[in-house]
Design a binder for these strands. Structure first.
Lengths: 165, 165
DNA sequence: ATATATGCAAAGGGTTTGCACTCCC
DNA sequence: GGGAGTGCAAACCCTTTGCATATAT
């Protein structure tokens, strides 16, 4: 848990102007992991009253650009999700049943955790790793297993569009 | 290079109906790697005459669902890209300068090439790995280097919107 | 005082949907 | 013949953009 004063200090220290929407957005993101933009907007409004959607987008951009927040894109047409930048270099599991996202420590634990093999003439700045599959709950309850493995891992599935029930 | 007859046979064998848009789309995707949807549409039309955009979307969905084609999503708001499913389990480098995409063999060479560490209760079906950075050409020519490493790998950068020049 | 954030409204862009028509099997 | 594929048009959804106003430093 981070206090409001600490968040203000964090913003100031990063060189960002301190505004109510920014402080509150930062607080919300640090509390609810992997929240979507409109979830965040709703939560911010609960605490501050009216704040425009565009303001939230602006704040999230600023926080992302400043490196205080990390933006996740779990599906091309889904809403972006955000989490606090902890610099612990973790990756994500996304369940195609319930849409839930879980953190998973990096396989190699260090950054860069994955190097594109050998002498490629390419400067890697970011390695994004996303594991798609089925969480234990969904595996137990549902009929999702039919797609379980006709295709090998690292093949993309057709786009899914399930929403959390 | 794959002949037209082979492509028809491939479709039939997969249980898909054989139509001109499907055969041609498959041919186009197998020739131009990582093409975007509208690039594919344009190329298909060059060979077949008028084909609706929605037909192309439908074909690409069908081919993806059947596992003949692999869909790449290199940025949440960018167009999807497609490549032939070669089952060789490779990953991708994407240059933030020119937008070009290069294949890179899997770091571990096998599928699943990456396992979320140890005893997580999660069935991994797909591991998507995307390396973002700068290719040799862009590194040499441009002013992109300013962002080179204030943030450690595996941190997302703010969304980029550069288009190929 | 001044550059920066926010509010409001509208556009943007890739993708999807609904329905009639046409084609493959 | 019958069901899937295609064409056409319009809707969708998240996100971005433009400009006036309010705010932080």
């Amino acid at each position: 848990m981070t206090t409001d004063a600490e968040l203000r200090e964090l913003l100031r220290h990063t060189g960002l102007r301190v505004t109510a929407p920014r402080v509150t957005t930062l607080a919300v993101v640090s509390e609810r992991h992997h929240a979507e933009t409109d979830e965040i907007a709703e939560a911010v409004r609960e605490r501050l009253g009216s704040v425009s959607t565009q303001a939230i987008y602006g704040v999230l951009h600023a926080l992302t650009a400043a490196g205080l927040v990390r933006r996740l894109e779990t599906g091309a047409r889904d809403a972006a999700r955000y989490e606090i930048q902890r610099h612990d270099n973790h990756h994500h599991l996304v369940c195609r049943g319930c849409g839930r996202i879980e953190d998973v420590p990096c396989v190699r634990g260090q950054s860069p955790c994955l190097e594109p093999s050998d002498a490629l003439d390419f400067t890697v700045e970011v390695a994004e790793v996303l594991f798609r599959g089925v969480c234990s709950e969904c595996r137990a309850t549902s009929v999702l297993m039919q797609t379980s493995s006709p295709m090998p891992p690292s093949s993309n599935q057709p786009p899914l569009k399930e929403k959390k029930p």
